[in-house]
Simulated assay, not measured.
Amino acid sequence: MIADLKTFIERERPVWQELERELGRVREGLASLSDLKYSRHLLALYQRASADLARIQGYSAEPELKAYLENLVGTGYAEIHSATRNSRHFKPWHWLTRTFPDTFRRQIWGFNMAVILTFVGAMLGGILVLHGNEGREAIFPSQFGHLVEQTPSQRVAREERPTEFDRMSGHKARFSAELMQNNITVSLRALAFGITFGILTVVLLFYNGVILGAVAVDYVMDGQIVFLFGWLLPHGSIEIPAILVAGQGGLVLGRALIGWGTPHSLRKRLRLITPDLATLAGGAAVMLIWAGIVEAFFSQYHAPVLPYWVKITFGTVELVGLIAFLFLCGRRAPSEPAP
């Protein structure tokens, strides 16, 4: 029994309005019922509105309020009890601009570890290159023999010859597809290697760092810094972070298998991280597709056809944009409840 209907309405109206607002966010795809904490909060709002509807059933003087609550509770029931509907309606733009960066930030520890492993590997690679050809032979696989046989200056001179400008004429699309396939394979391997409790993911990230550091120091020592940045930045500013994101997924998987810091069973740990792993893998793949296109149609052109300052500026803008996207995109206002 309600002693004071007016006071009751004033007290409960904020709850109804919040429920109405959150149901709108769920319908628009701005909130997900797959988040346990959020779904419990929404269910509590729904149950309270249902109880309020039951309490005013005997008041014939408030037909509009009763109709409003009946509609609100009905909508809430439809959304809450059909949560699986949202999983069957994939929204690419929402996934790219909100789900992916949000997942990246939630598992940022894995990315930080991937960066550290790559950086340590790069330091070792740089140190080995300082020992001359013996260090190069110890680092570079046989298919990269030209990195041992030629100095960076010789390679740059070859790349800048006029006869080299159109060497991929008519083959750029195929070359781009090959780059995408190779890079996506390497990245997915870094993620899948998490099944080894993250051990092979650590090895792969470290070795990639060794190669990267060796190449960078080799060019820097030979005075080819401008060429190095002009060559690597356009595609590397996206490709390298993509591999790190894939490695991030592998480390997340490895940690879940080991079970650090959680009382959950192995099955539950894997179930909890599966959406994040799929998102990180998909995000890395999208980044690598873009990097492959840039590498084939932009990075392979050198001065004087394409000035290095243009390539460096382009790569820098890409890197800044990627950082802003990953760390800022999809963030909610302080007053906006988390999904």
Rank of each mutant, 00 (worst) to 15 (best):
G76A: 09
N86W: 15
R40I: 05
A44I: 06
H81V: 00
A31T: 02
H89R: 14
Y46F: 01
A83S: 12
S87E: 13
A83W: 01
L69C: 04
V73N: 00
Y77I: 01
R85N: 00
E79H: 11
A67I: 05
K66V: 06
R85L: 03
A31M: 04
R88G: 12
A31F: 02
E62P: 01
A51W: 10
T84R: 15
L30T: 05
H89M: 14
L43A: 14
L72M: 01
L30E: 07
K91Q: 08
I80V: 00
F90K: 14
P92S: 10
H41T: 04
K66H: 07
I56M: 03
L65T: 09
P63G: 09
L69E: 07
G74I: 04
A78S: 15
R88V: 13
G29E: 09
L33E: 00
E70K: 13
L30I: 05
L43V: 08
R48T: 14
H41I: 05
Y77T: 04
H41Q: 07
W93Q: 07
E70Y: 03
N71H: 02
N86H: 13
Y59K: 14
R85F: 03
Y77S: 09
A83E: 11
E79R: 11
K91M: 09
R40Q: 10
S34P: 05
S82V: 05
A44F: 08
N86I: 10
A83Y: 03
S32P: 03
R40M: 11
H41F: 00
S60E: 15
R40Y: 01
H81D: 05
I80H: 02
G58E: 11
F90Q: 07
S87Y: 10
G76M: 12
S32E: 10
D52Y: 13
L65P: 11
R48A: 03
D35W: 04
D35E: 07
Q47C: 08
Y59W: 15
T84A: 15
F90A: 04
P92E: 08
A67D: 03
L43M: 09
L72W: 06
D52L: 05
P63L: 01
D52G: 08
E64M: 06
N86P: 01
Q47Y: 11
S60H: 12
A67W: 04
A44W: 00
R88Y: 15
A31S: 09
K91G: 08
A83K: 00
P63W: 06
D35I: 08
S87K: 14
S39N: 00
